[in-house]
Amino acid sequence: MKIQKEALAGTLESSDLMVKVSPNSGIEIIVNSEVNKQFGAQIRSVVESTLAQLNVTDGLIVIDDKGALDCAIKARVQCAVLRGAEVEELDWSKLL
């Protein structure tokens, strides 16, 4: 799956995150977080595993985290990627 257009998901409220995706050659992940020192590696791991589940091969993913839980990170990444890839029919089994 490739990101075809810019897309957003999430908010910048406390305990949430904003995920921005845009076209790119290859995968590039940028994580900006208030808790980056403590949880930056975990945030990146959740993003990478979510991208792998969705078979994303190309895209720039920018995460602006405000202390979100792993389940929120996964949901926001899924939403932004599906919007950016212009997916019209979902394979719900990949969203578990």
Score class of each variant (00 low, 15 high):
residue 4 Q to F: 08
residue 4 Q to A: 14
residue 4 Q to M: 10
residue 4 Q to D: 02
residue 4 Q to K: 13
residue 4 Q to S: 11
residue 5 K to H: 09
residue 5 K to N: 12
residue 5 K to Q: 13
residue 5 K to W: 09
residue 5 K to C: 14
residue 6 E to N: 10
residue 6 E to W: 07
residue 6 E to D: 08
residue 6 E to I: 11
residue 6 E to P: 04
residue 6 E to T: 15
residue 7 A to S: 06
residue 8 L to F: 13
residue 8 L to D: 13
residue 9 A to C: 13
residue 9 A to P: 11
residue 9 A to T: 11
residue 10 G to D: 01
residue 10 G to S: 06
residue 10 G to Q: 06
residue 10 G to E: 01
residue 11 T to S: 11
residue 11 T to G: 02
residue 11 T to L: 05
residue 12 L to M: 09
residue 12 L to D: 05
residue 12 L to K: 08
residue 13 E to C: 03
residue 13 E to M: 12
residue 13 E to S: 07
residue 13 E to F: 05
residue 14 S to Y: 11
residue 14 S to V: 14
residue 14 S to K: 15
residue 14 S to Q: 15
residue 14 S to A: 15
residue 15 S to Y: 05
residue 15 S to E: 12
residue 15 S to Q: 14
residue 15 S to K: 14
residue 15 S to R: 12
residue 16 D to I: 10
residue 16 D to M: 09
residue 16 D to P: 10
residue 16 D to K: 09
residue 17 L to E: 01
residue 17 L to S: 00
residue 18 M to N: 04
residue 19 V to C: 08
residue 19 V to A: 01
residue 19 V to G: 05
residue 19 V to W: 04
residue 19 V to M: 00
residue 19 V to N: 02
residue 20 K to N: 14
residue 20 K to H: 15
residue 21 V to M: 02
residue 21 V to Y: 00
residue 21 V to C: 00
residue 21 V to G: 03
residue 21 V to W: 02
residue 21 V to N: 00
residue 22 S to C: 05
residue 22 S to H: 08
residue 22 S to L: 03
residue 24 N to F: 10
residue 24 N to M: 05
residue 24 N to T: 02
residue 25 S to F: 03
residue 25 S to D: 11
residue 25 S to R: 07
residue 25 S to A: 09
residue 25 S to T: 05
residue 26 G to D: 06
residue 26 G to T: 04
residue 27 I to Y: 00
residue 28 E to T: 14
residue 28 E to C: 09
residue 28 E to F: 08
residue 29 I to Q: 07
residue 29 I to F: 11
residue 29 I to A: 11
residue 29 I to G: 10
residue 30 I to N: 15
residue 30 I to D: 13
residue 31 V to G: 07
residue 33 S to A: 14
residue 33 S to V: 04
residue 34 E to H: 06
residue 34 E to G: 15
residue 35 V to I: 13
residue 35 V to T: 12
residue 35 V to F: 12
residue 35 V to K: 04
residue 35 V to R: 12
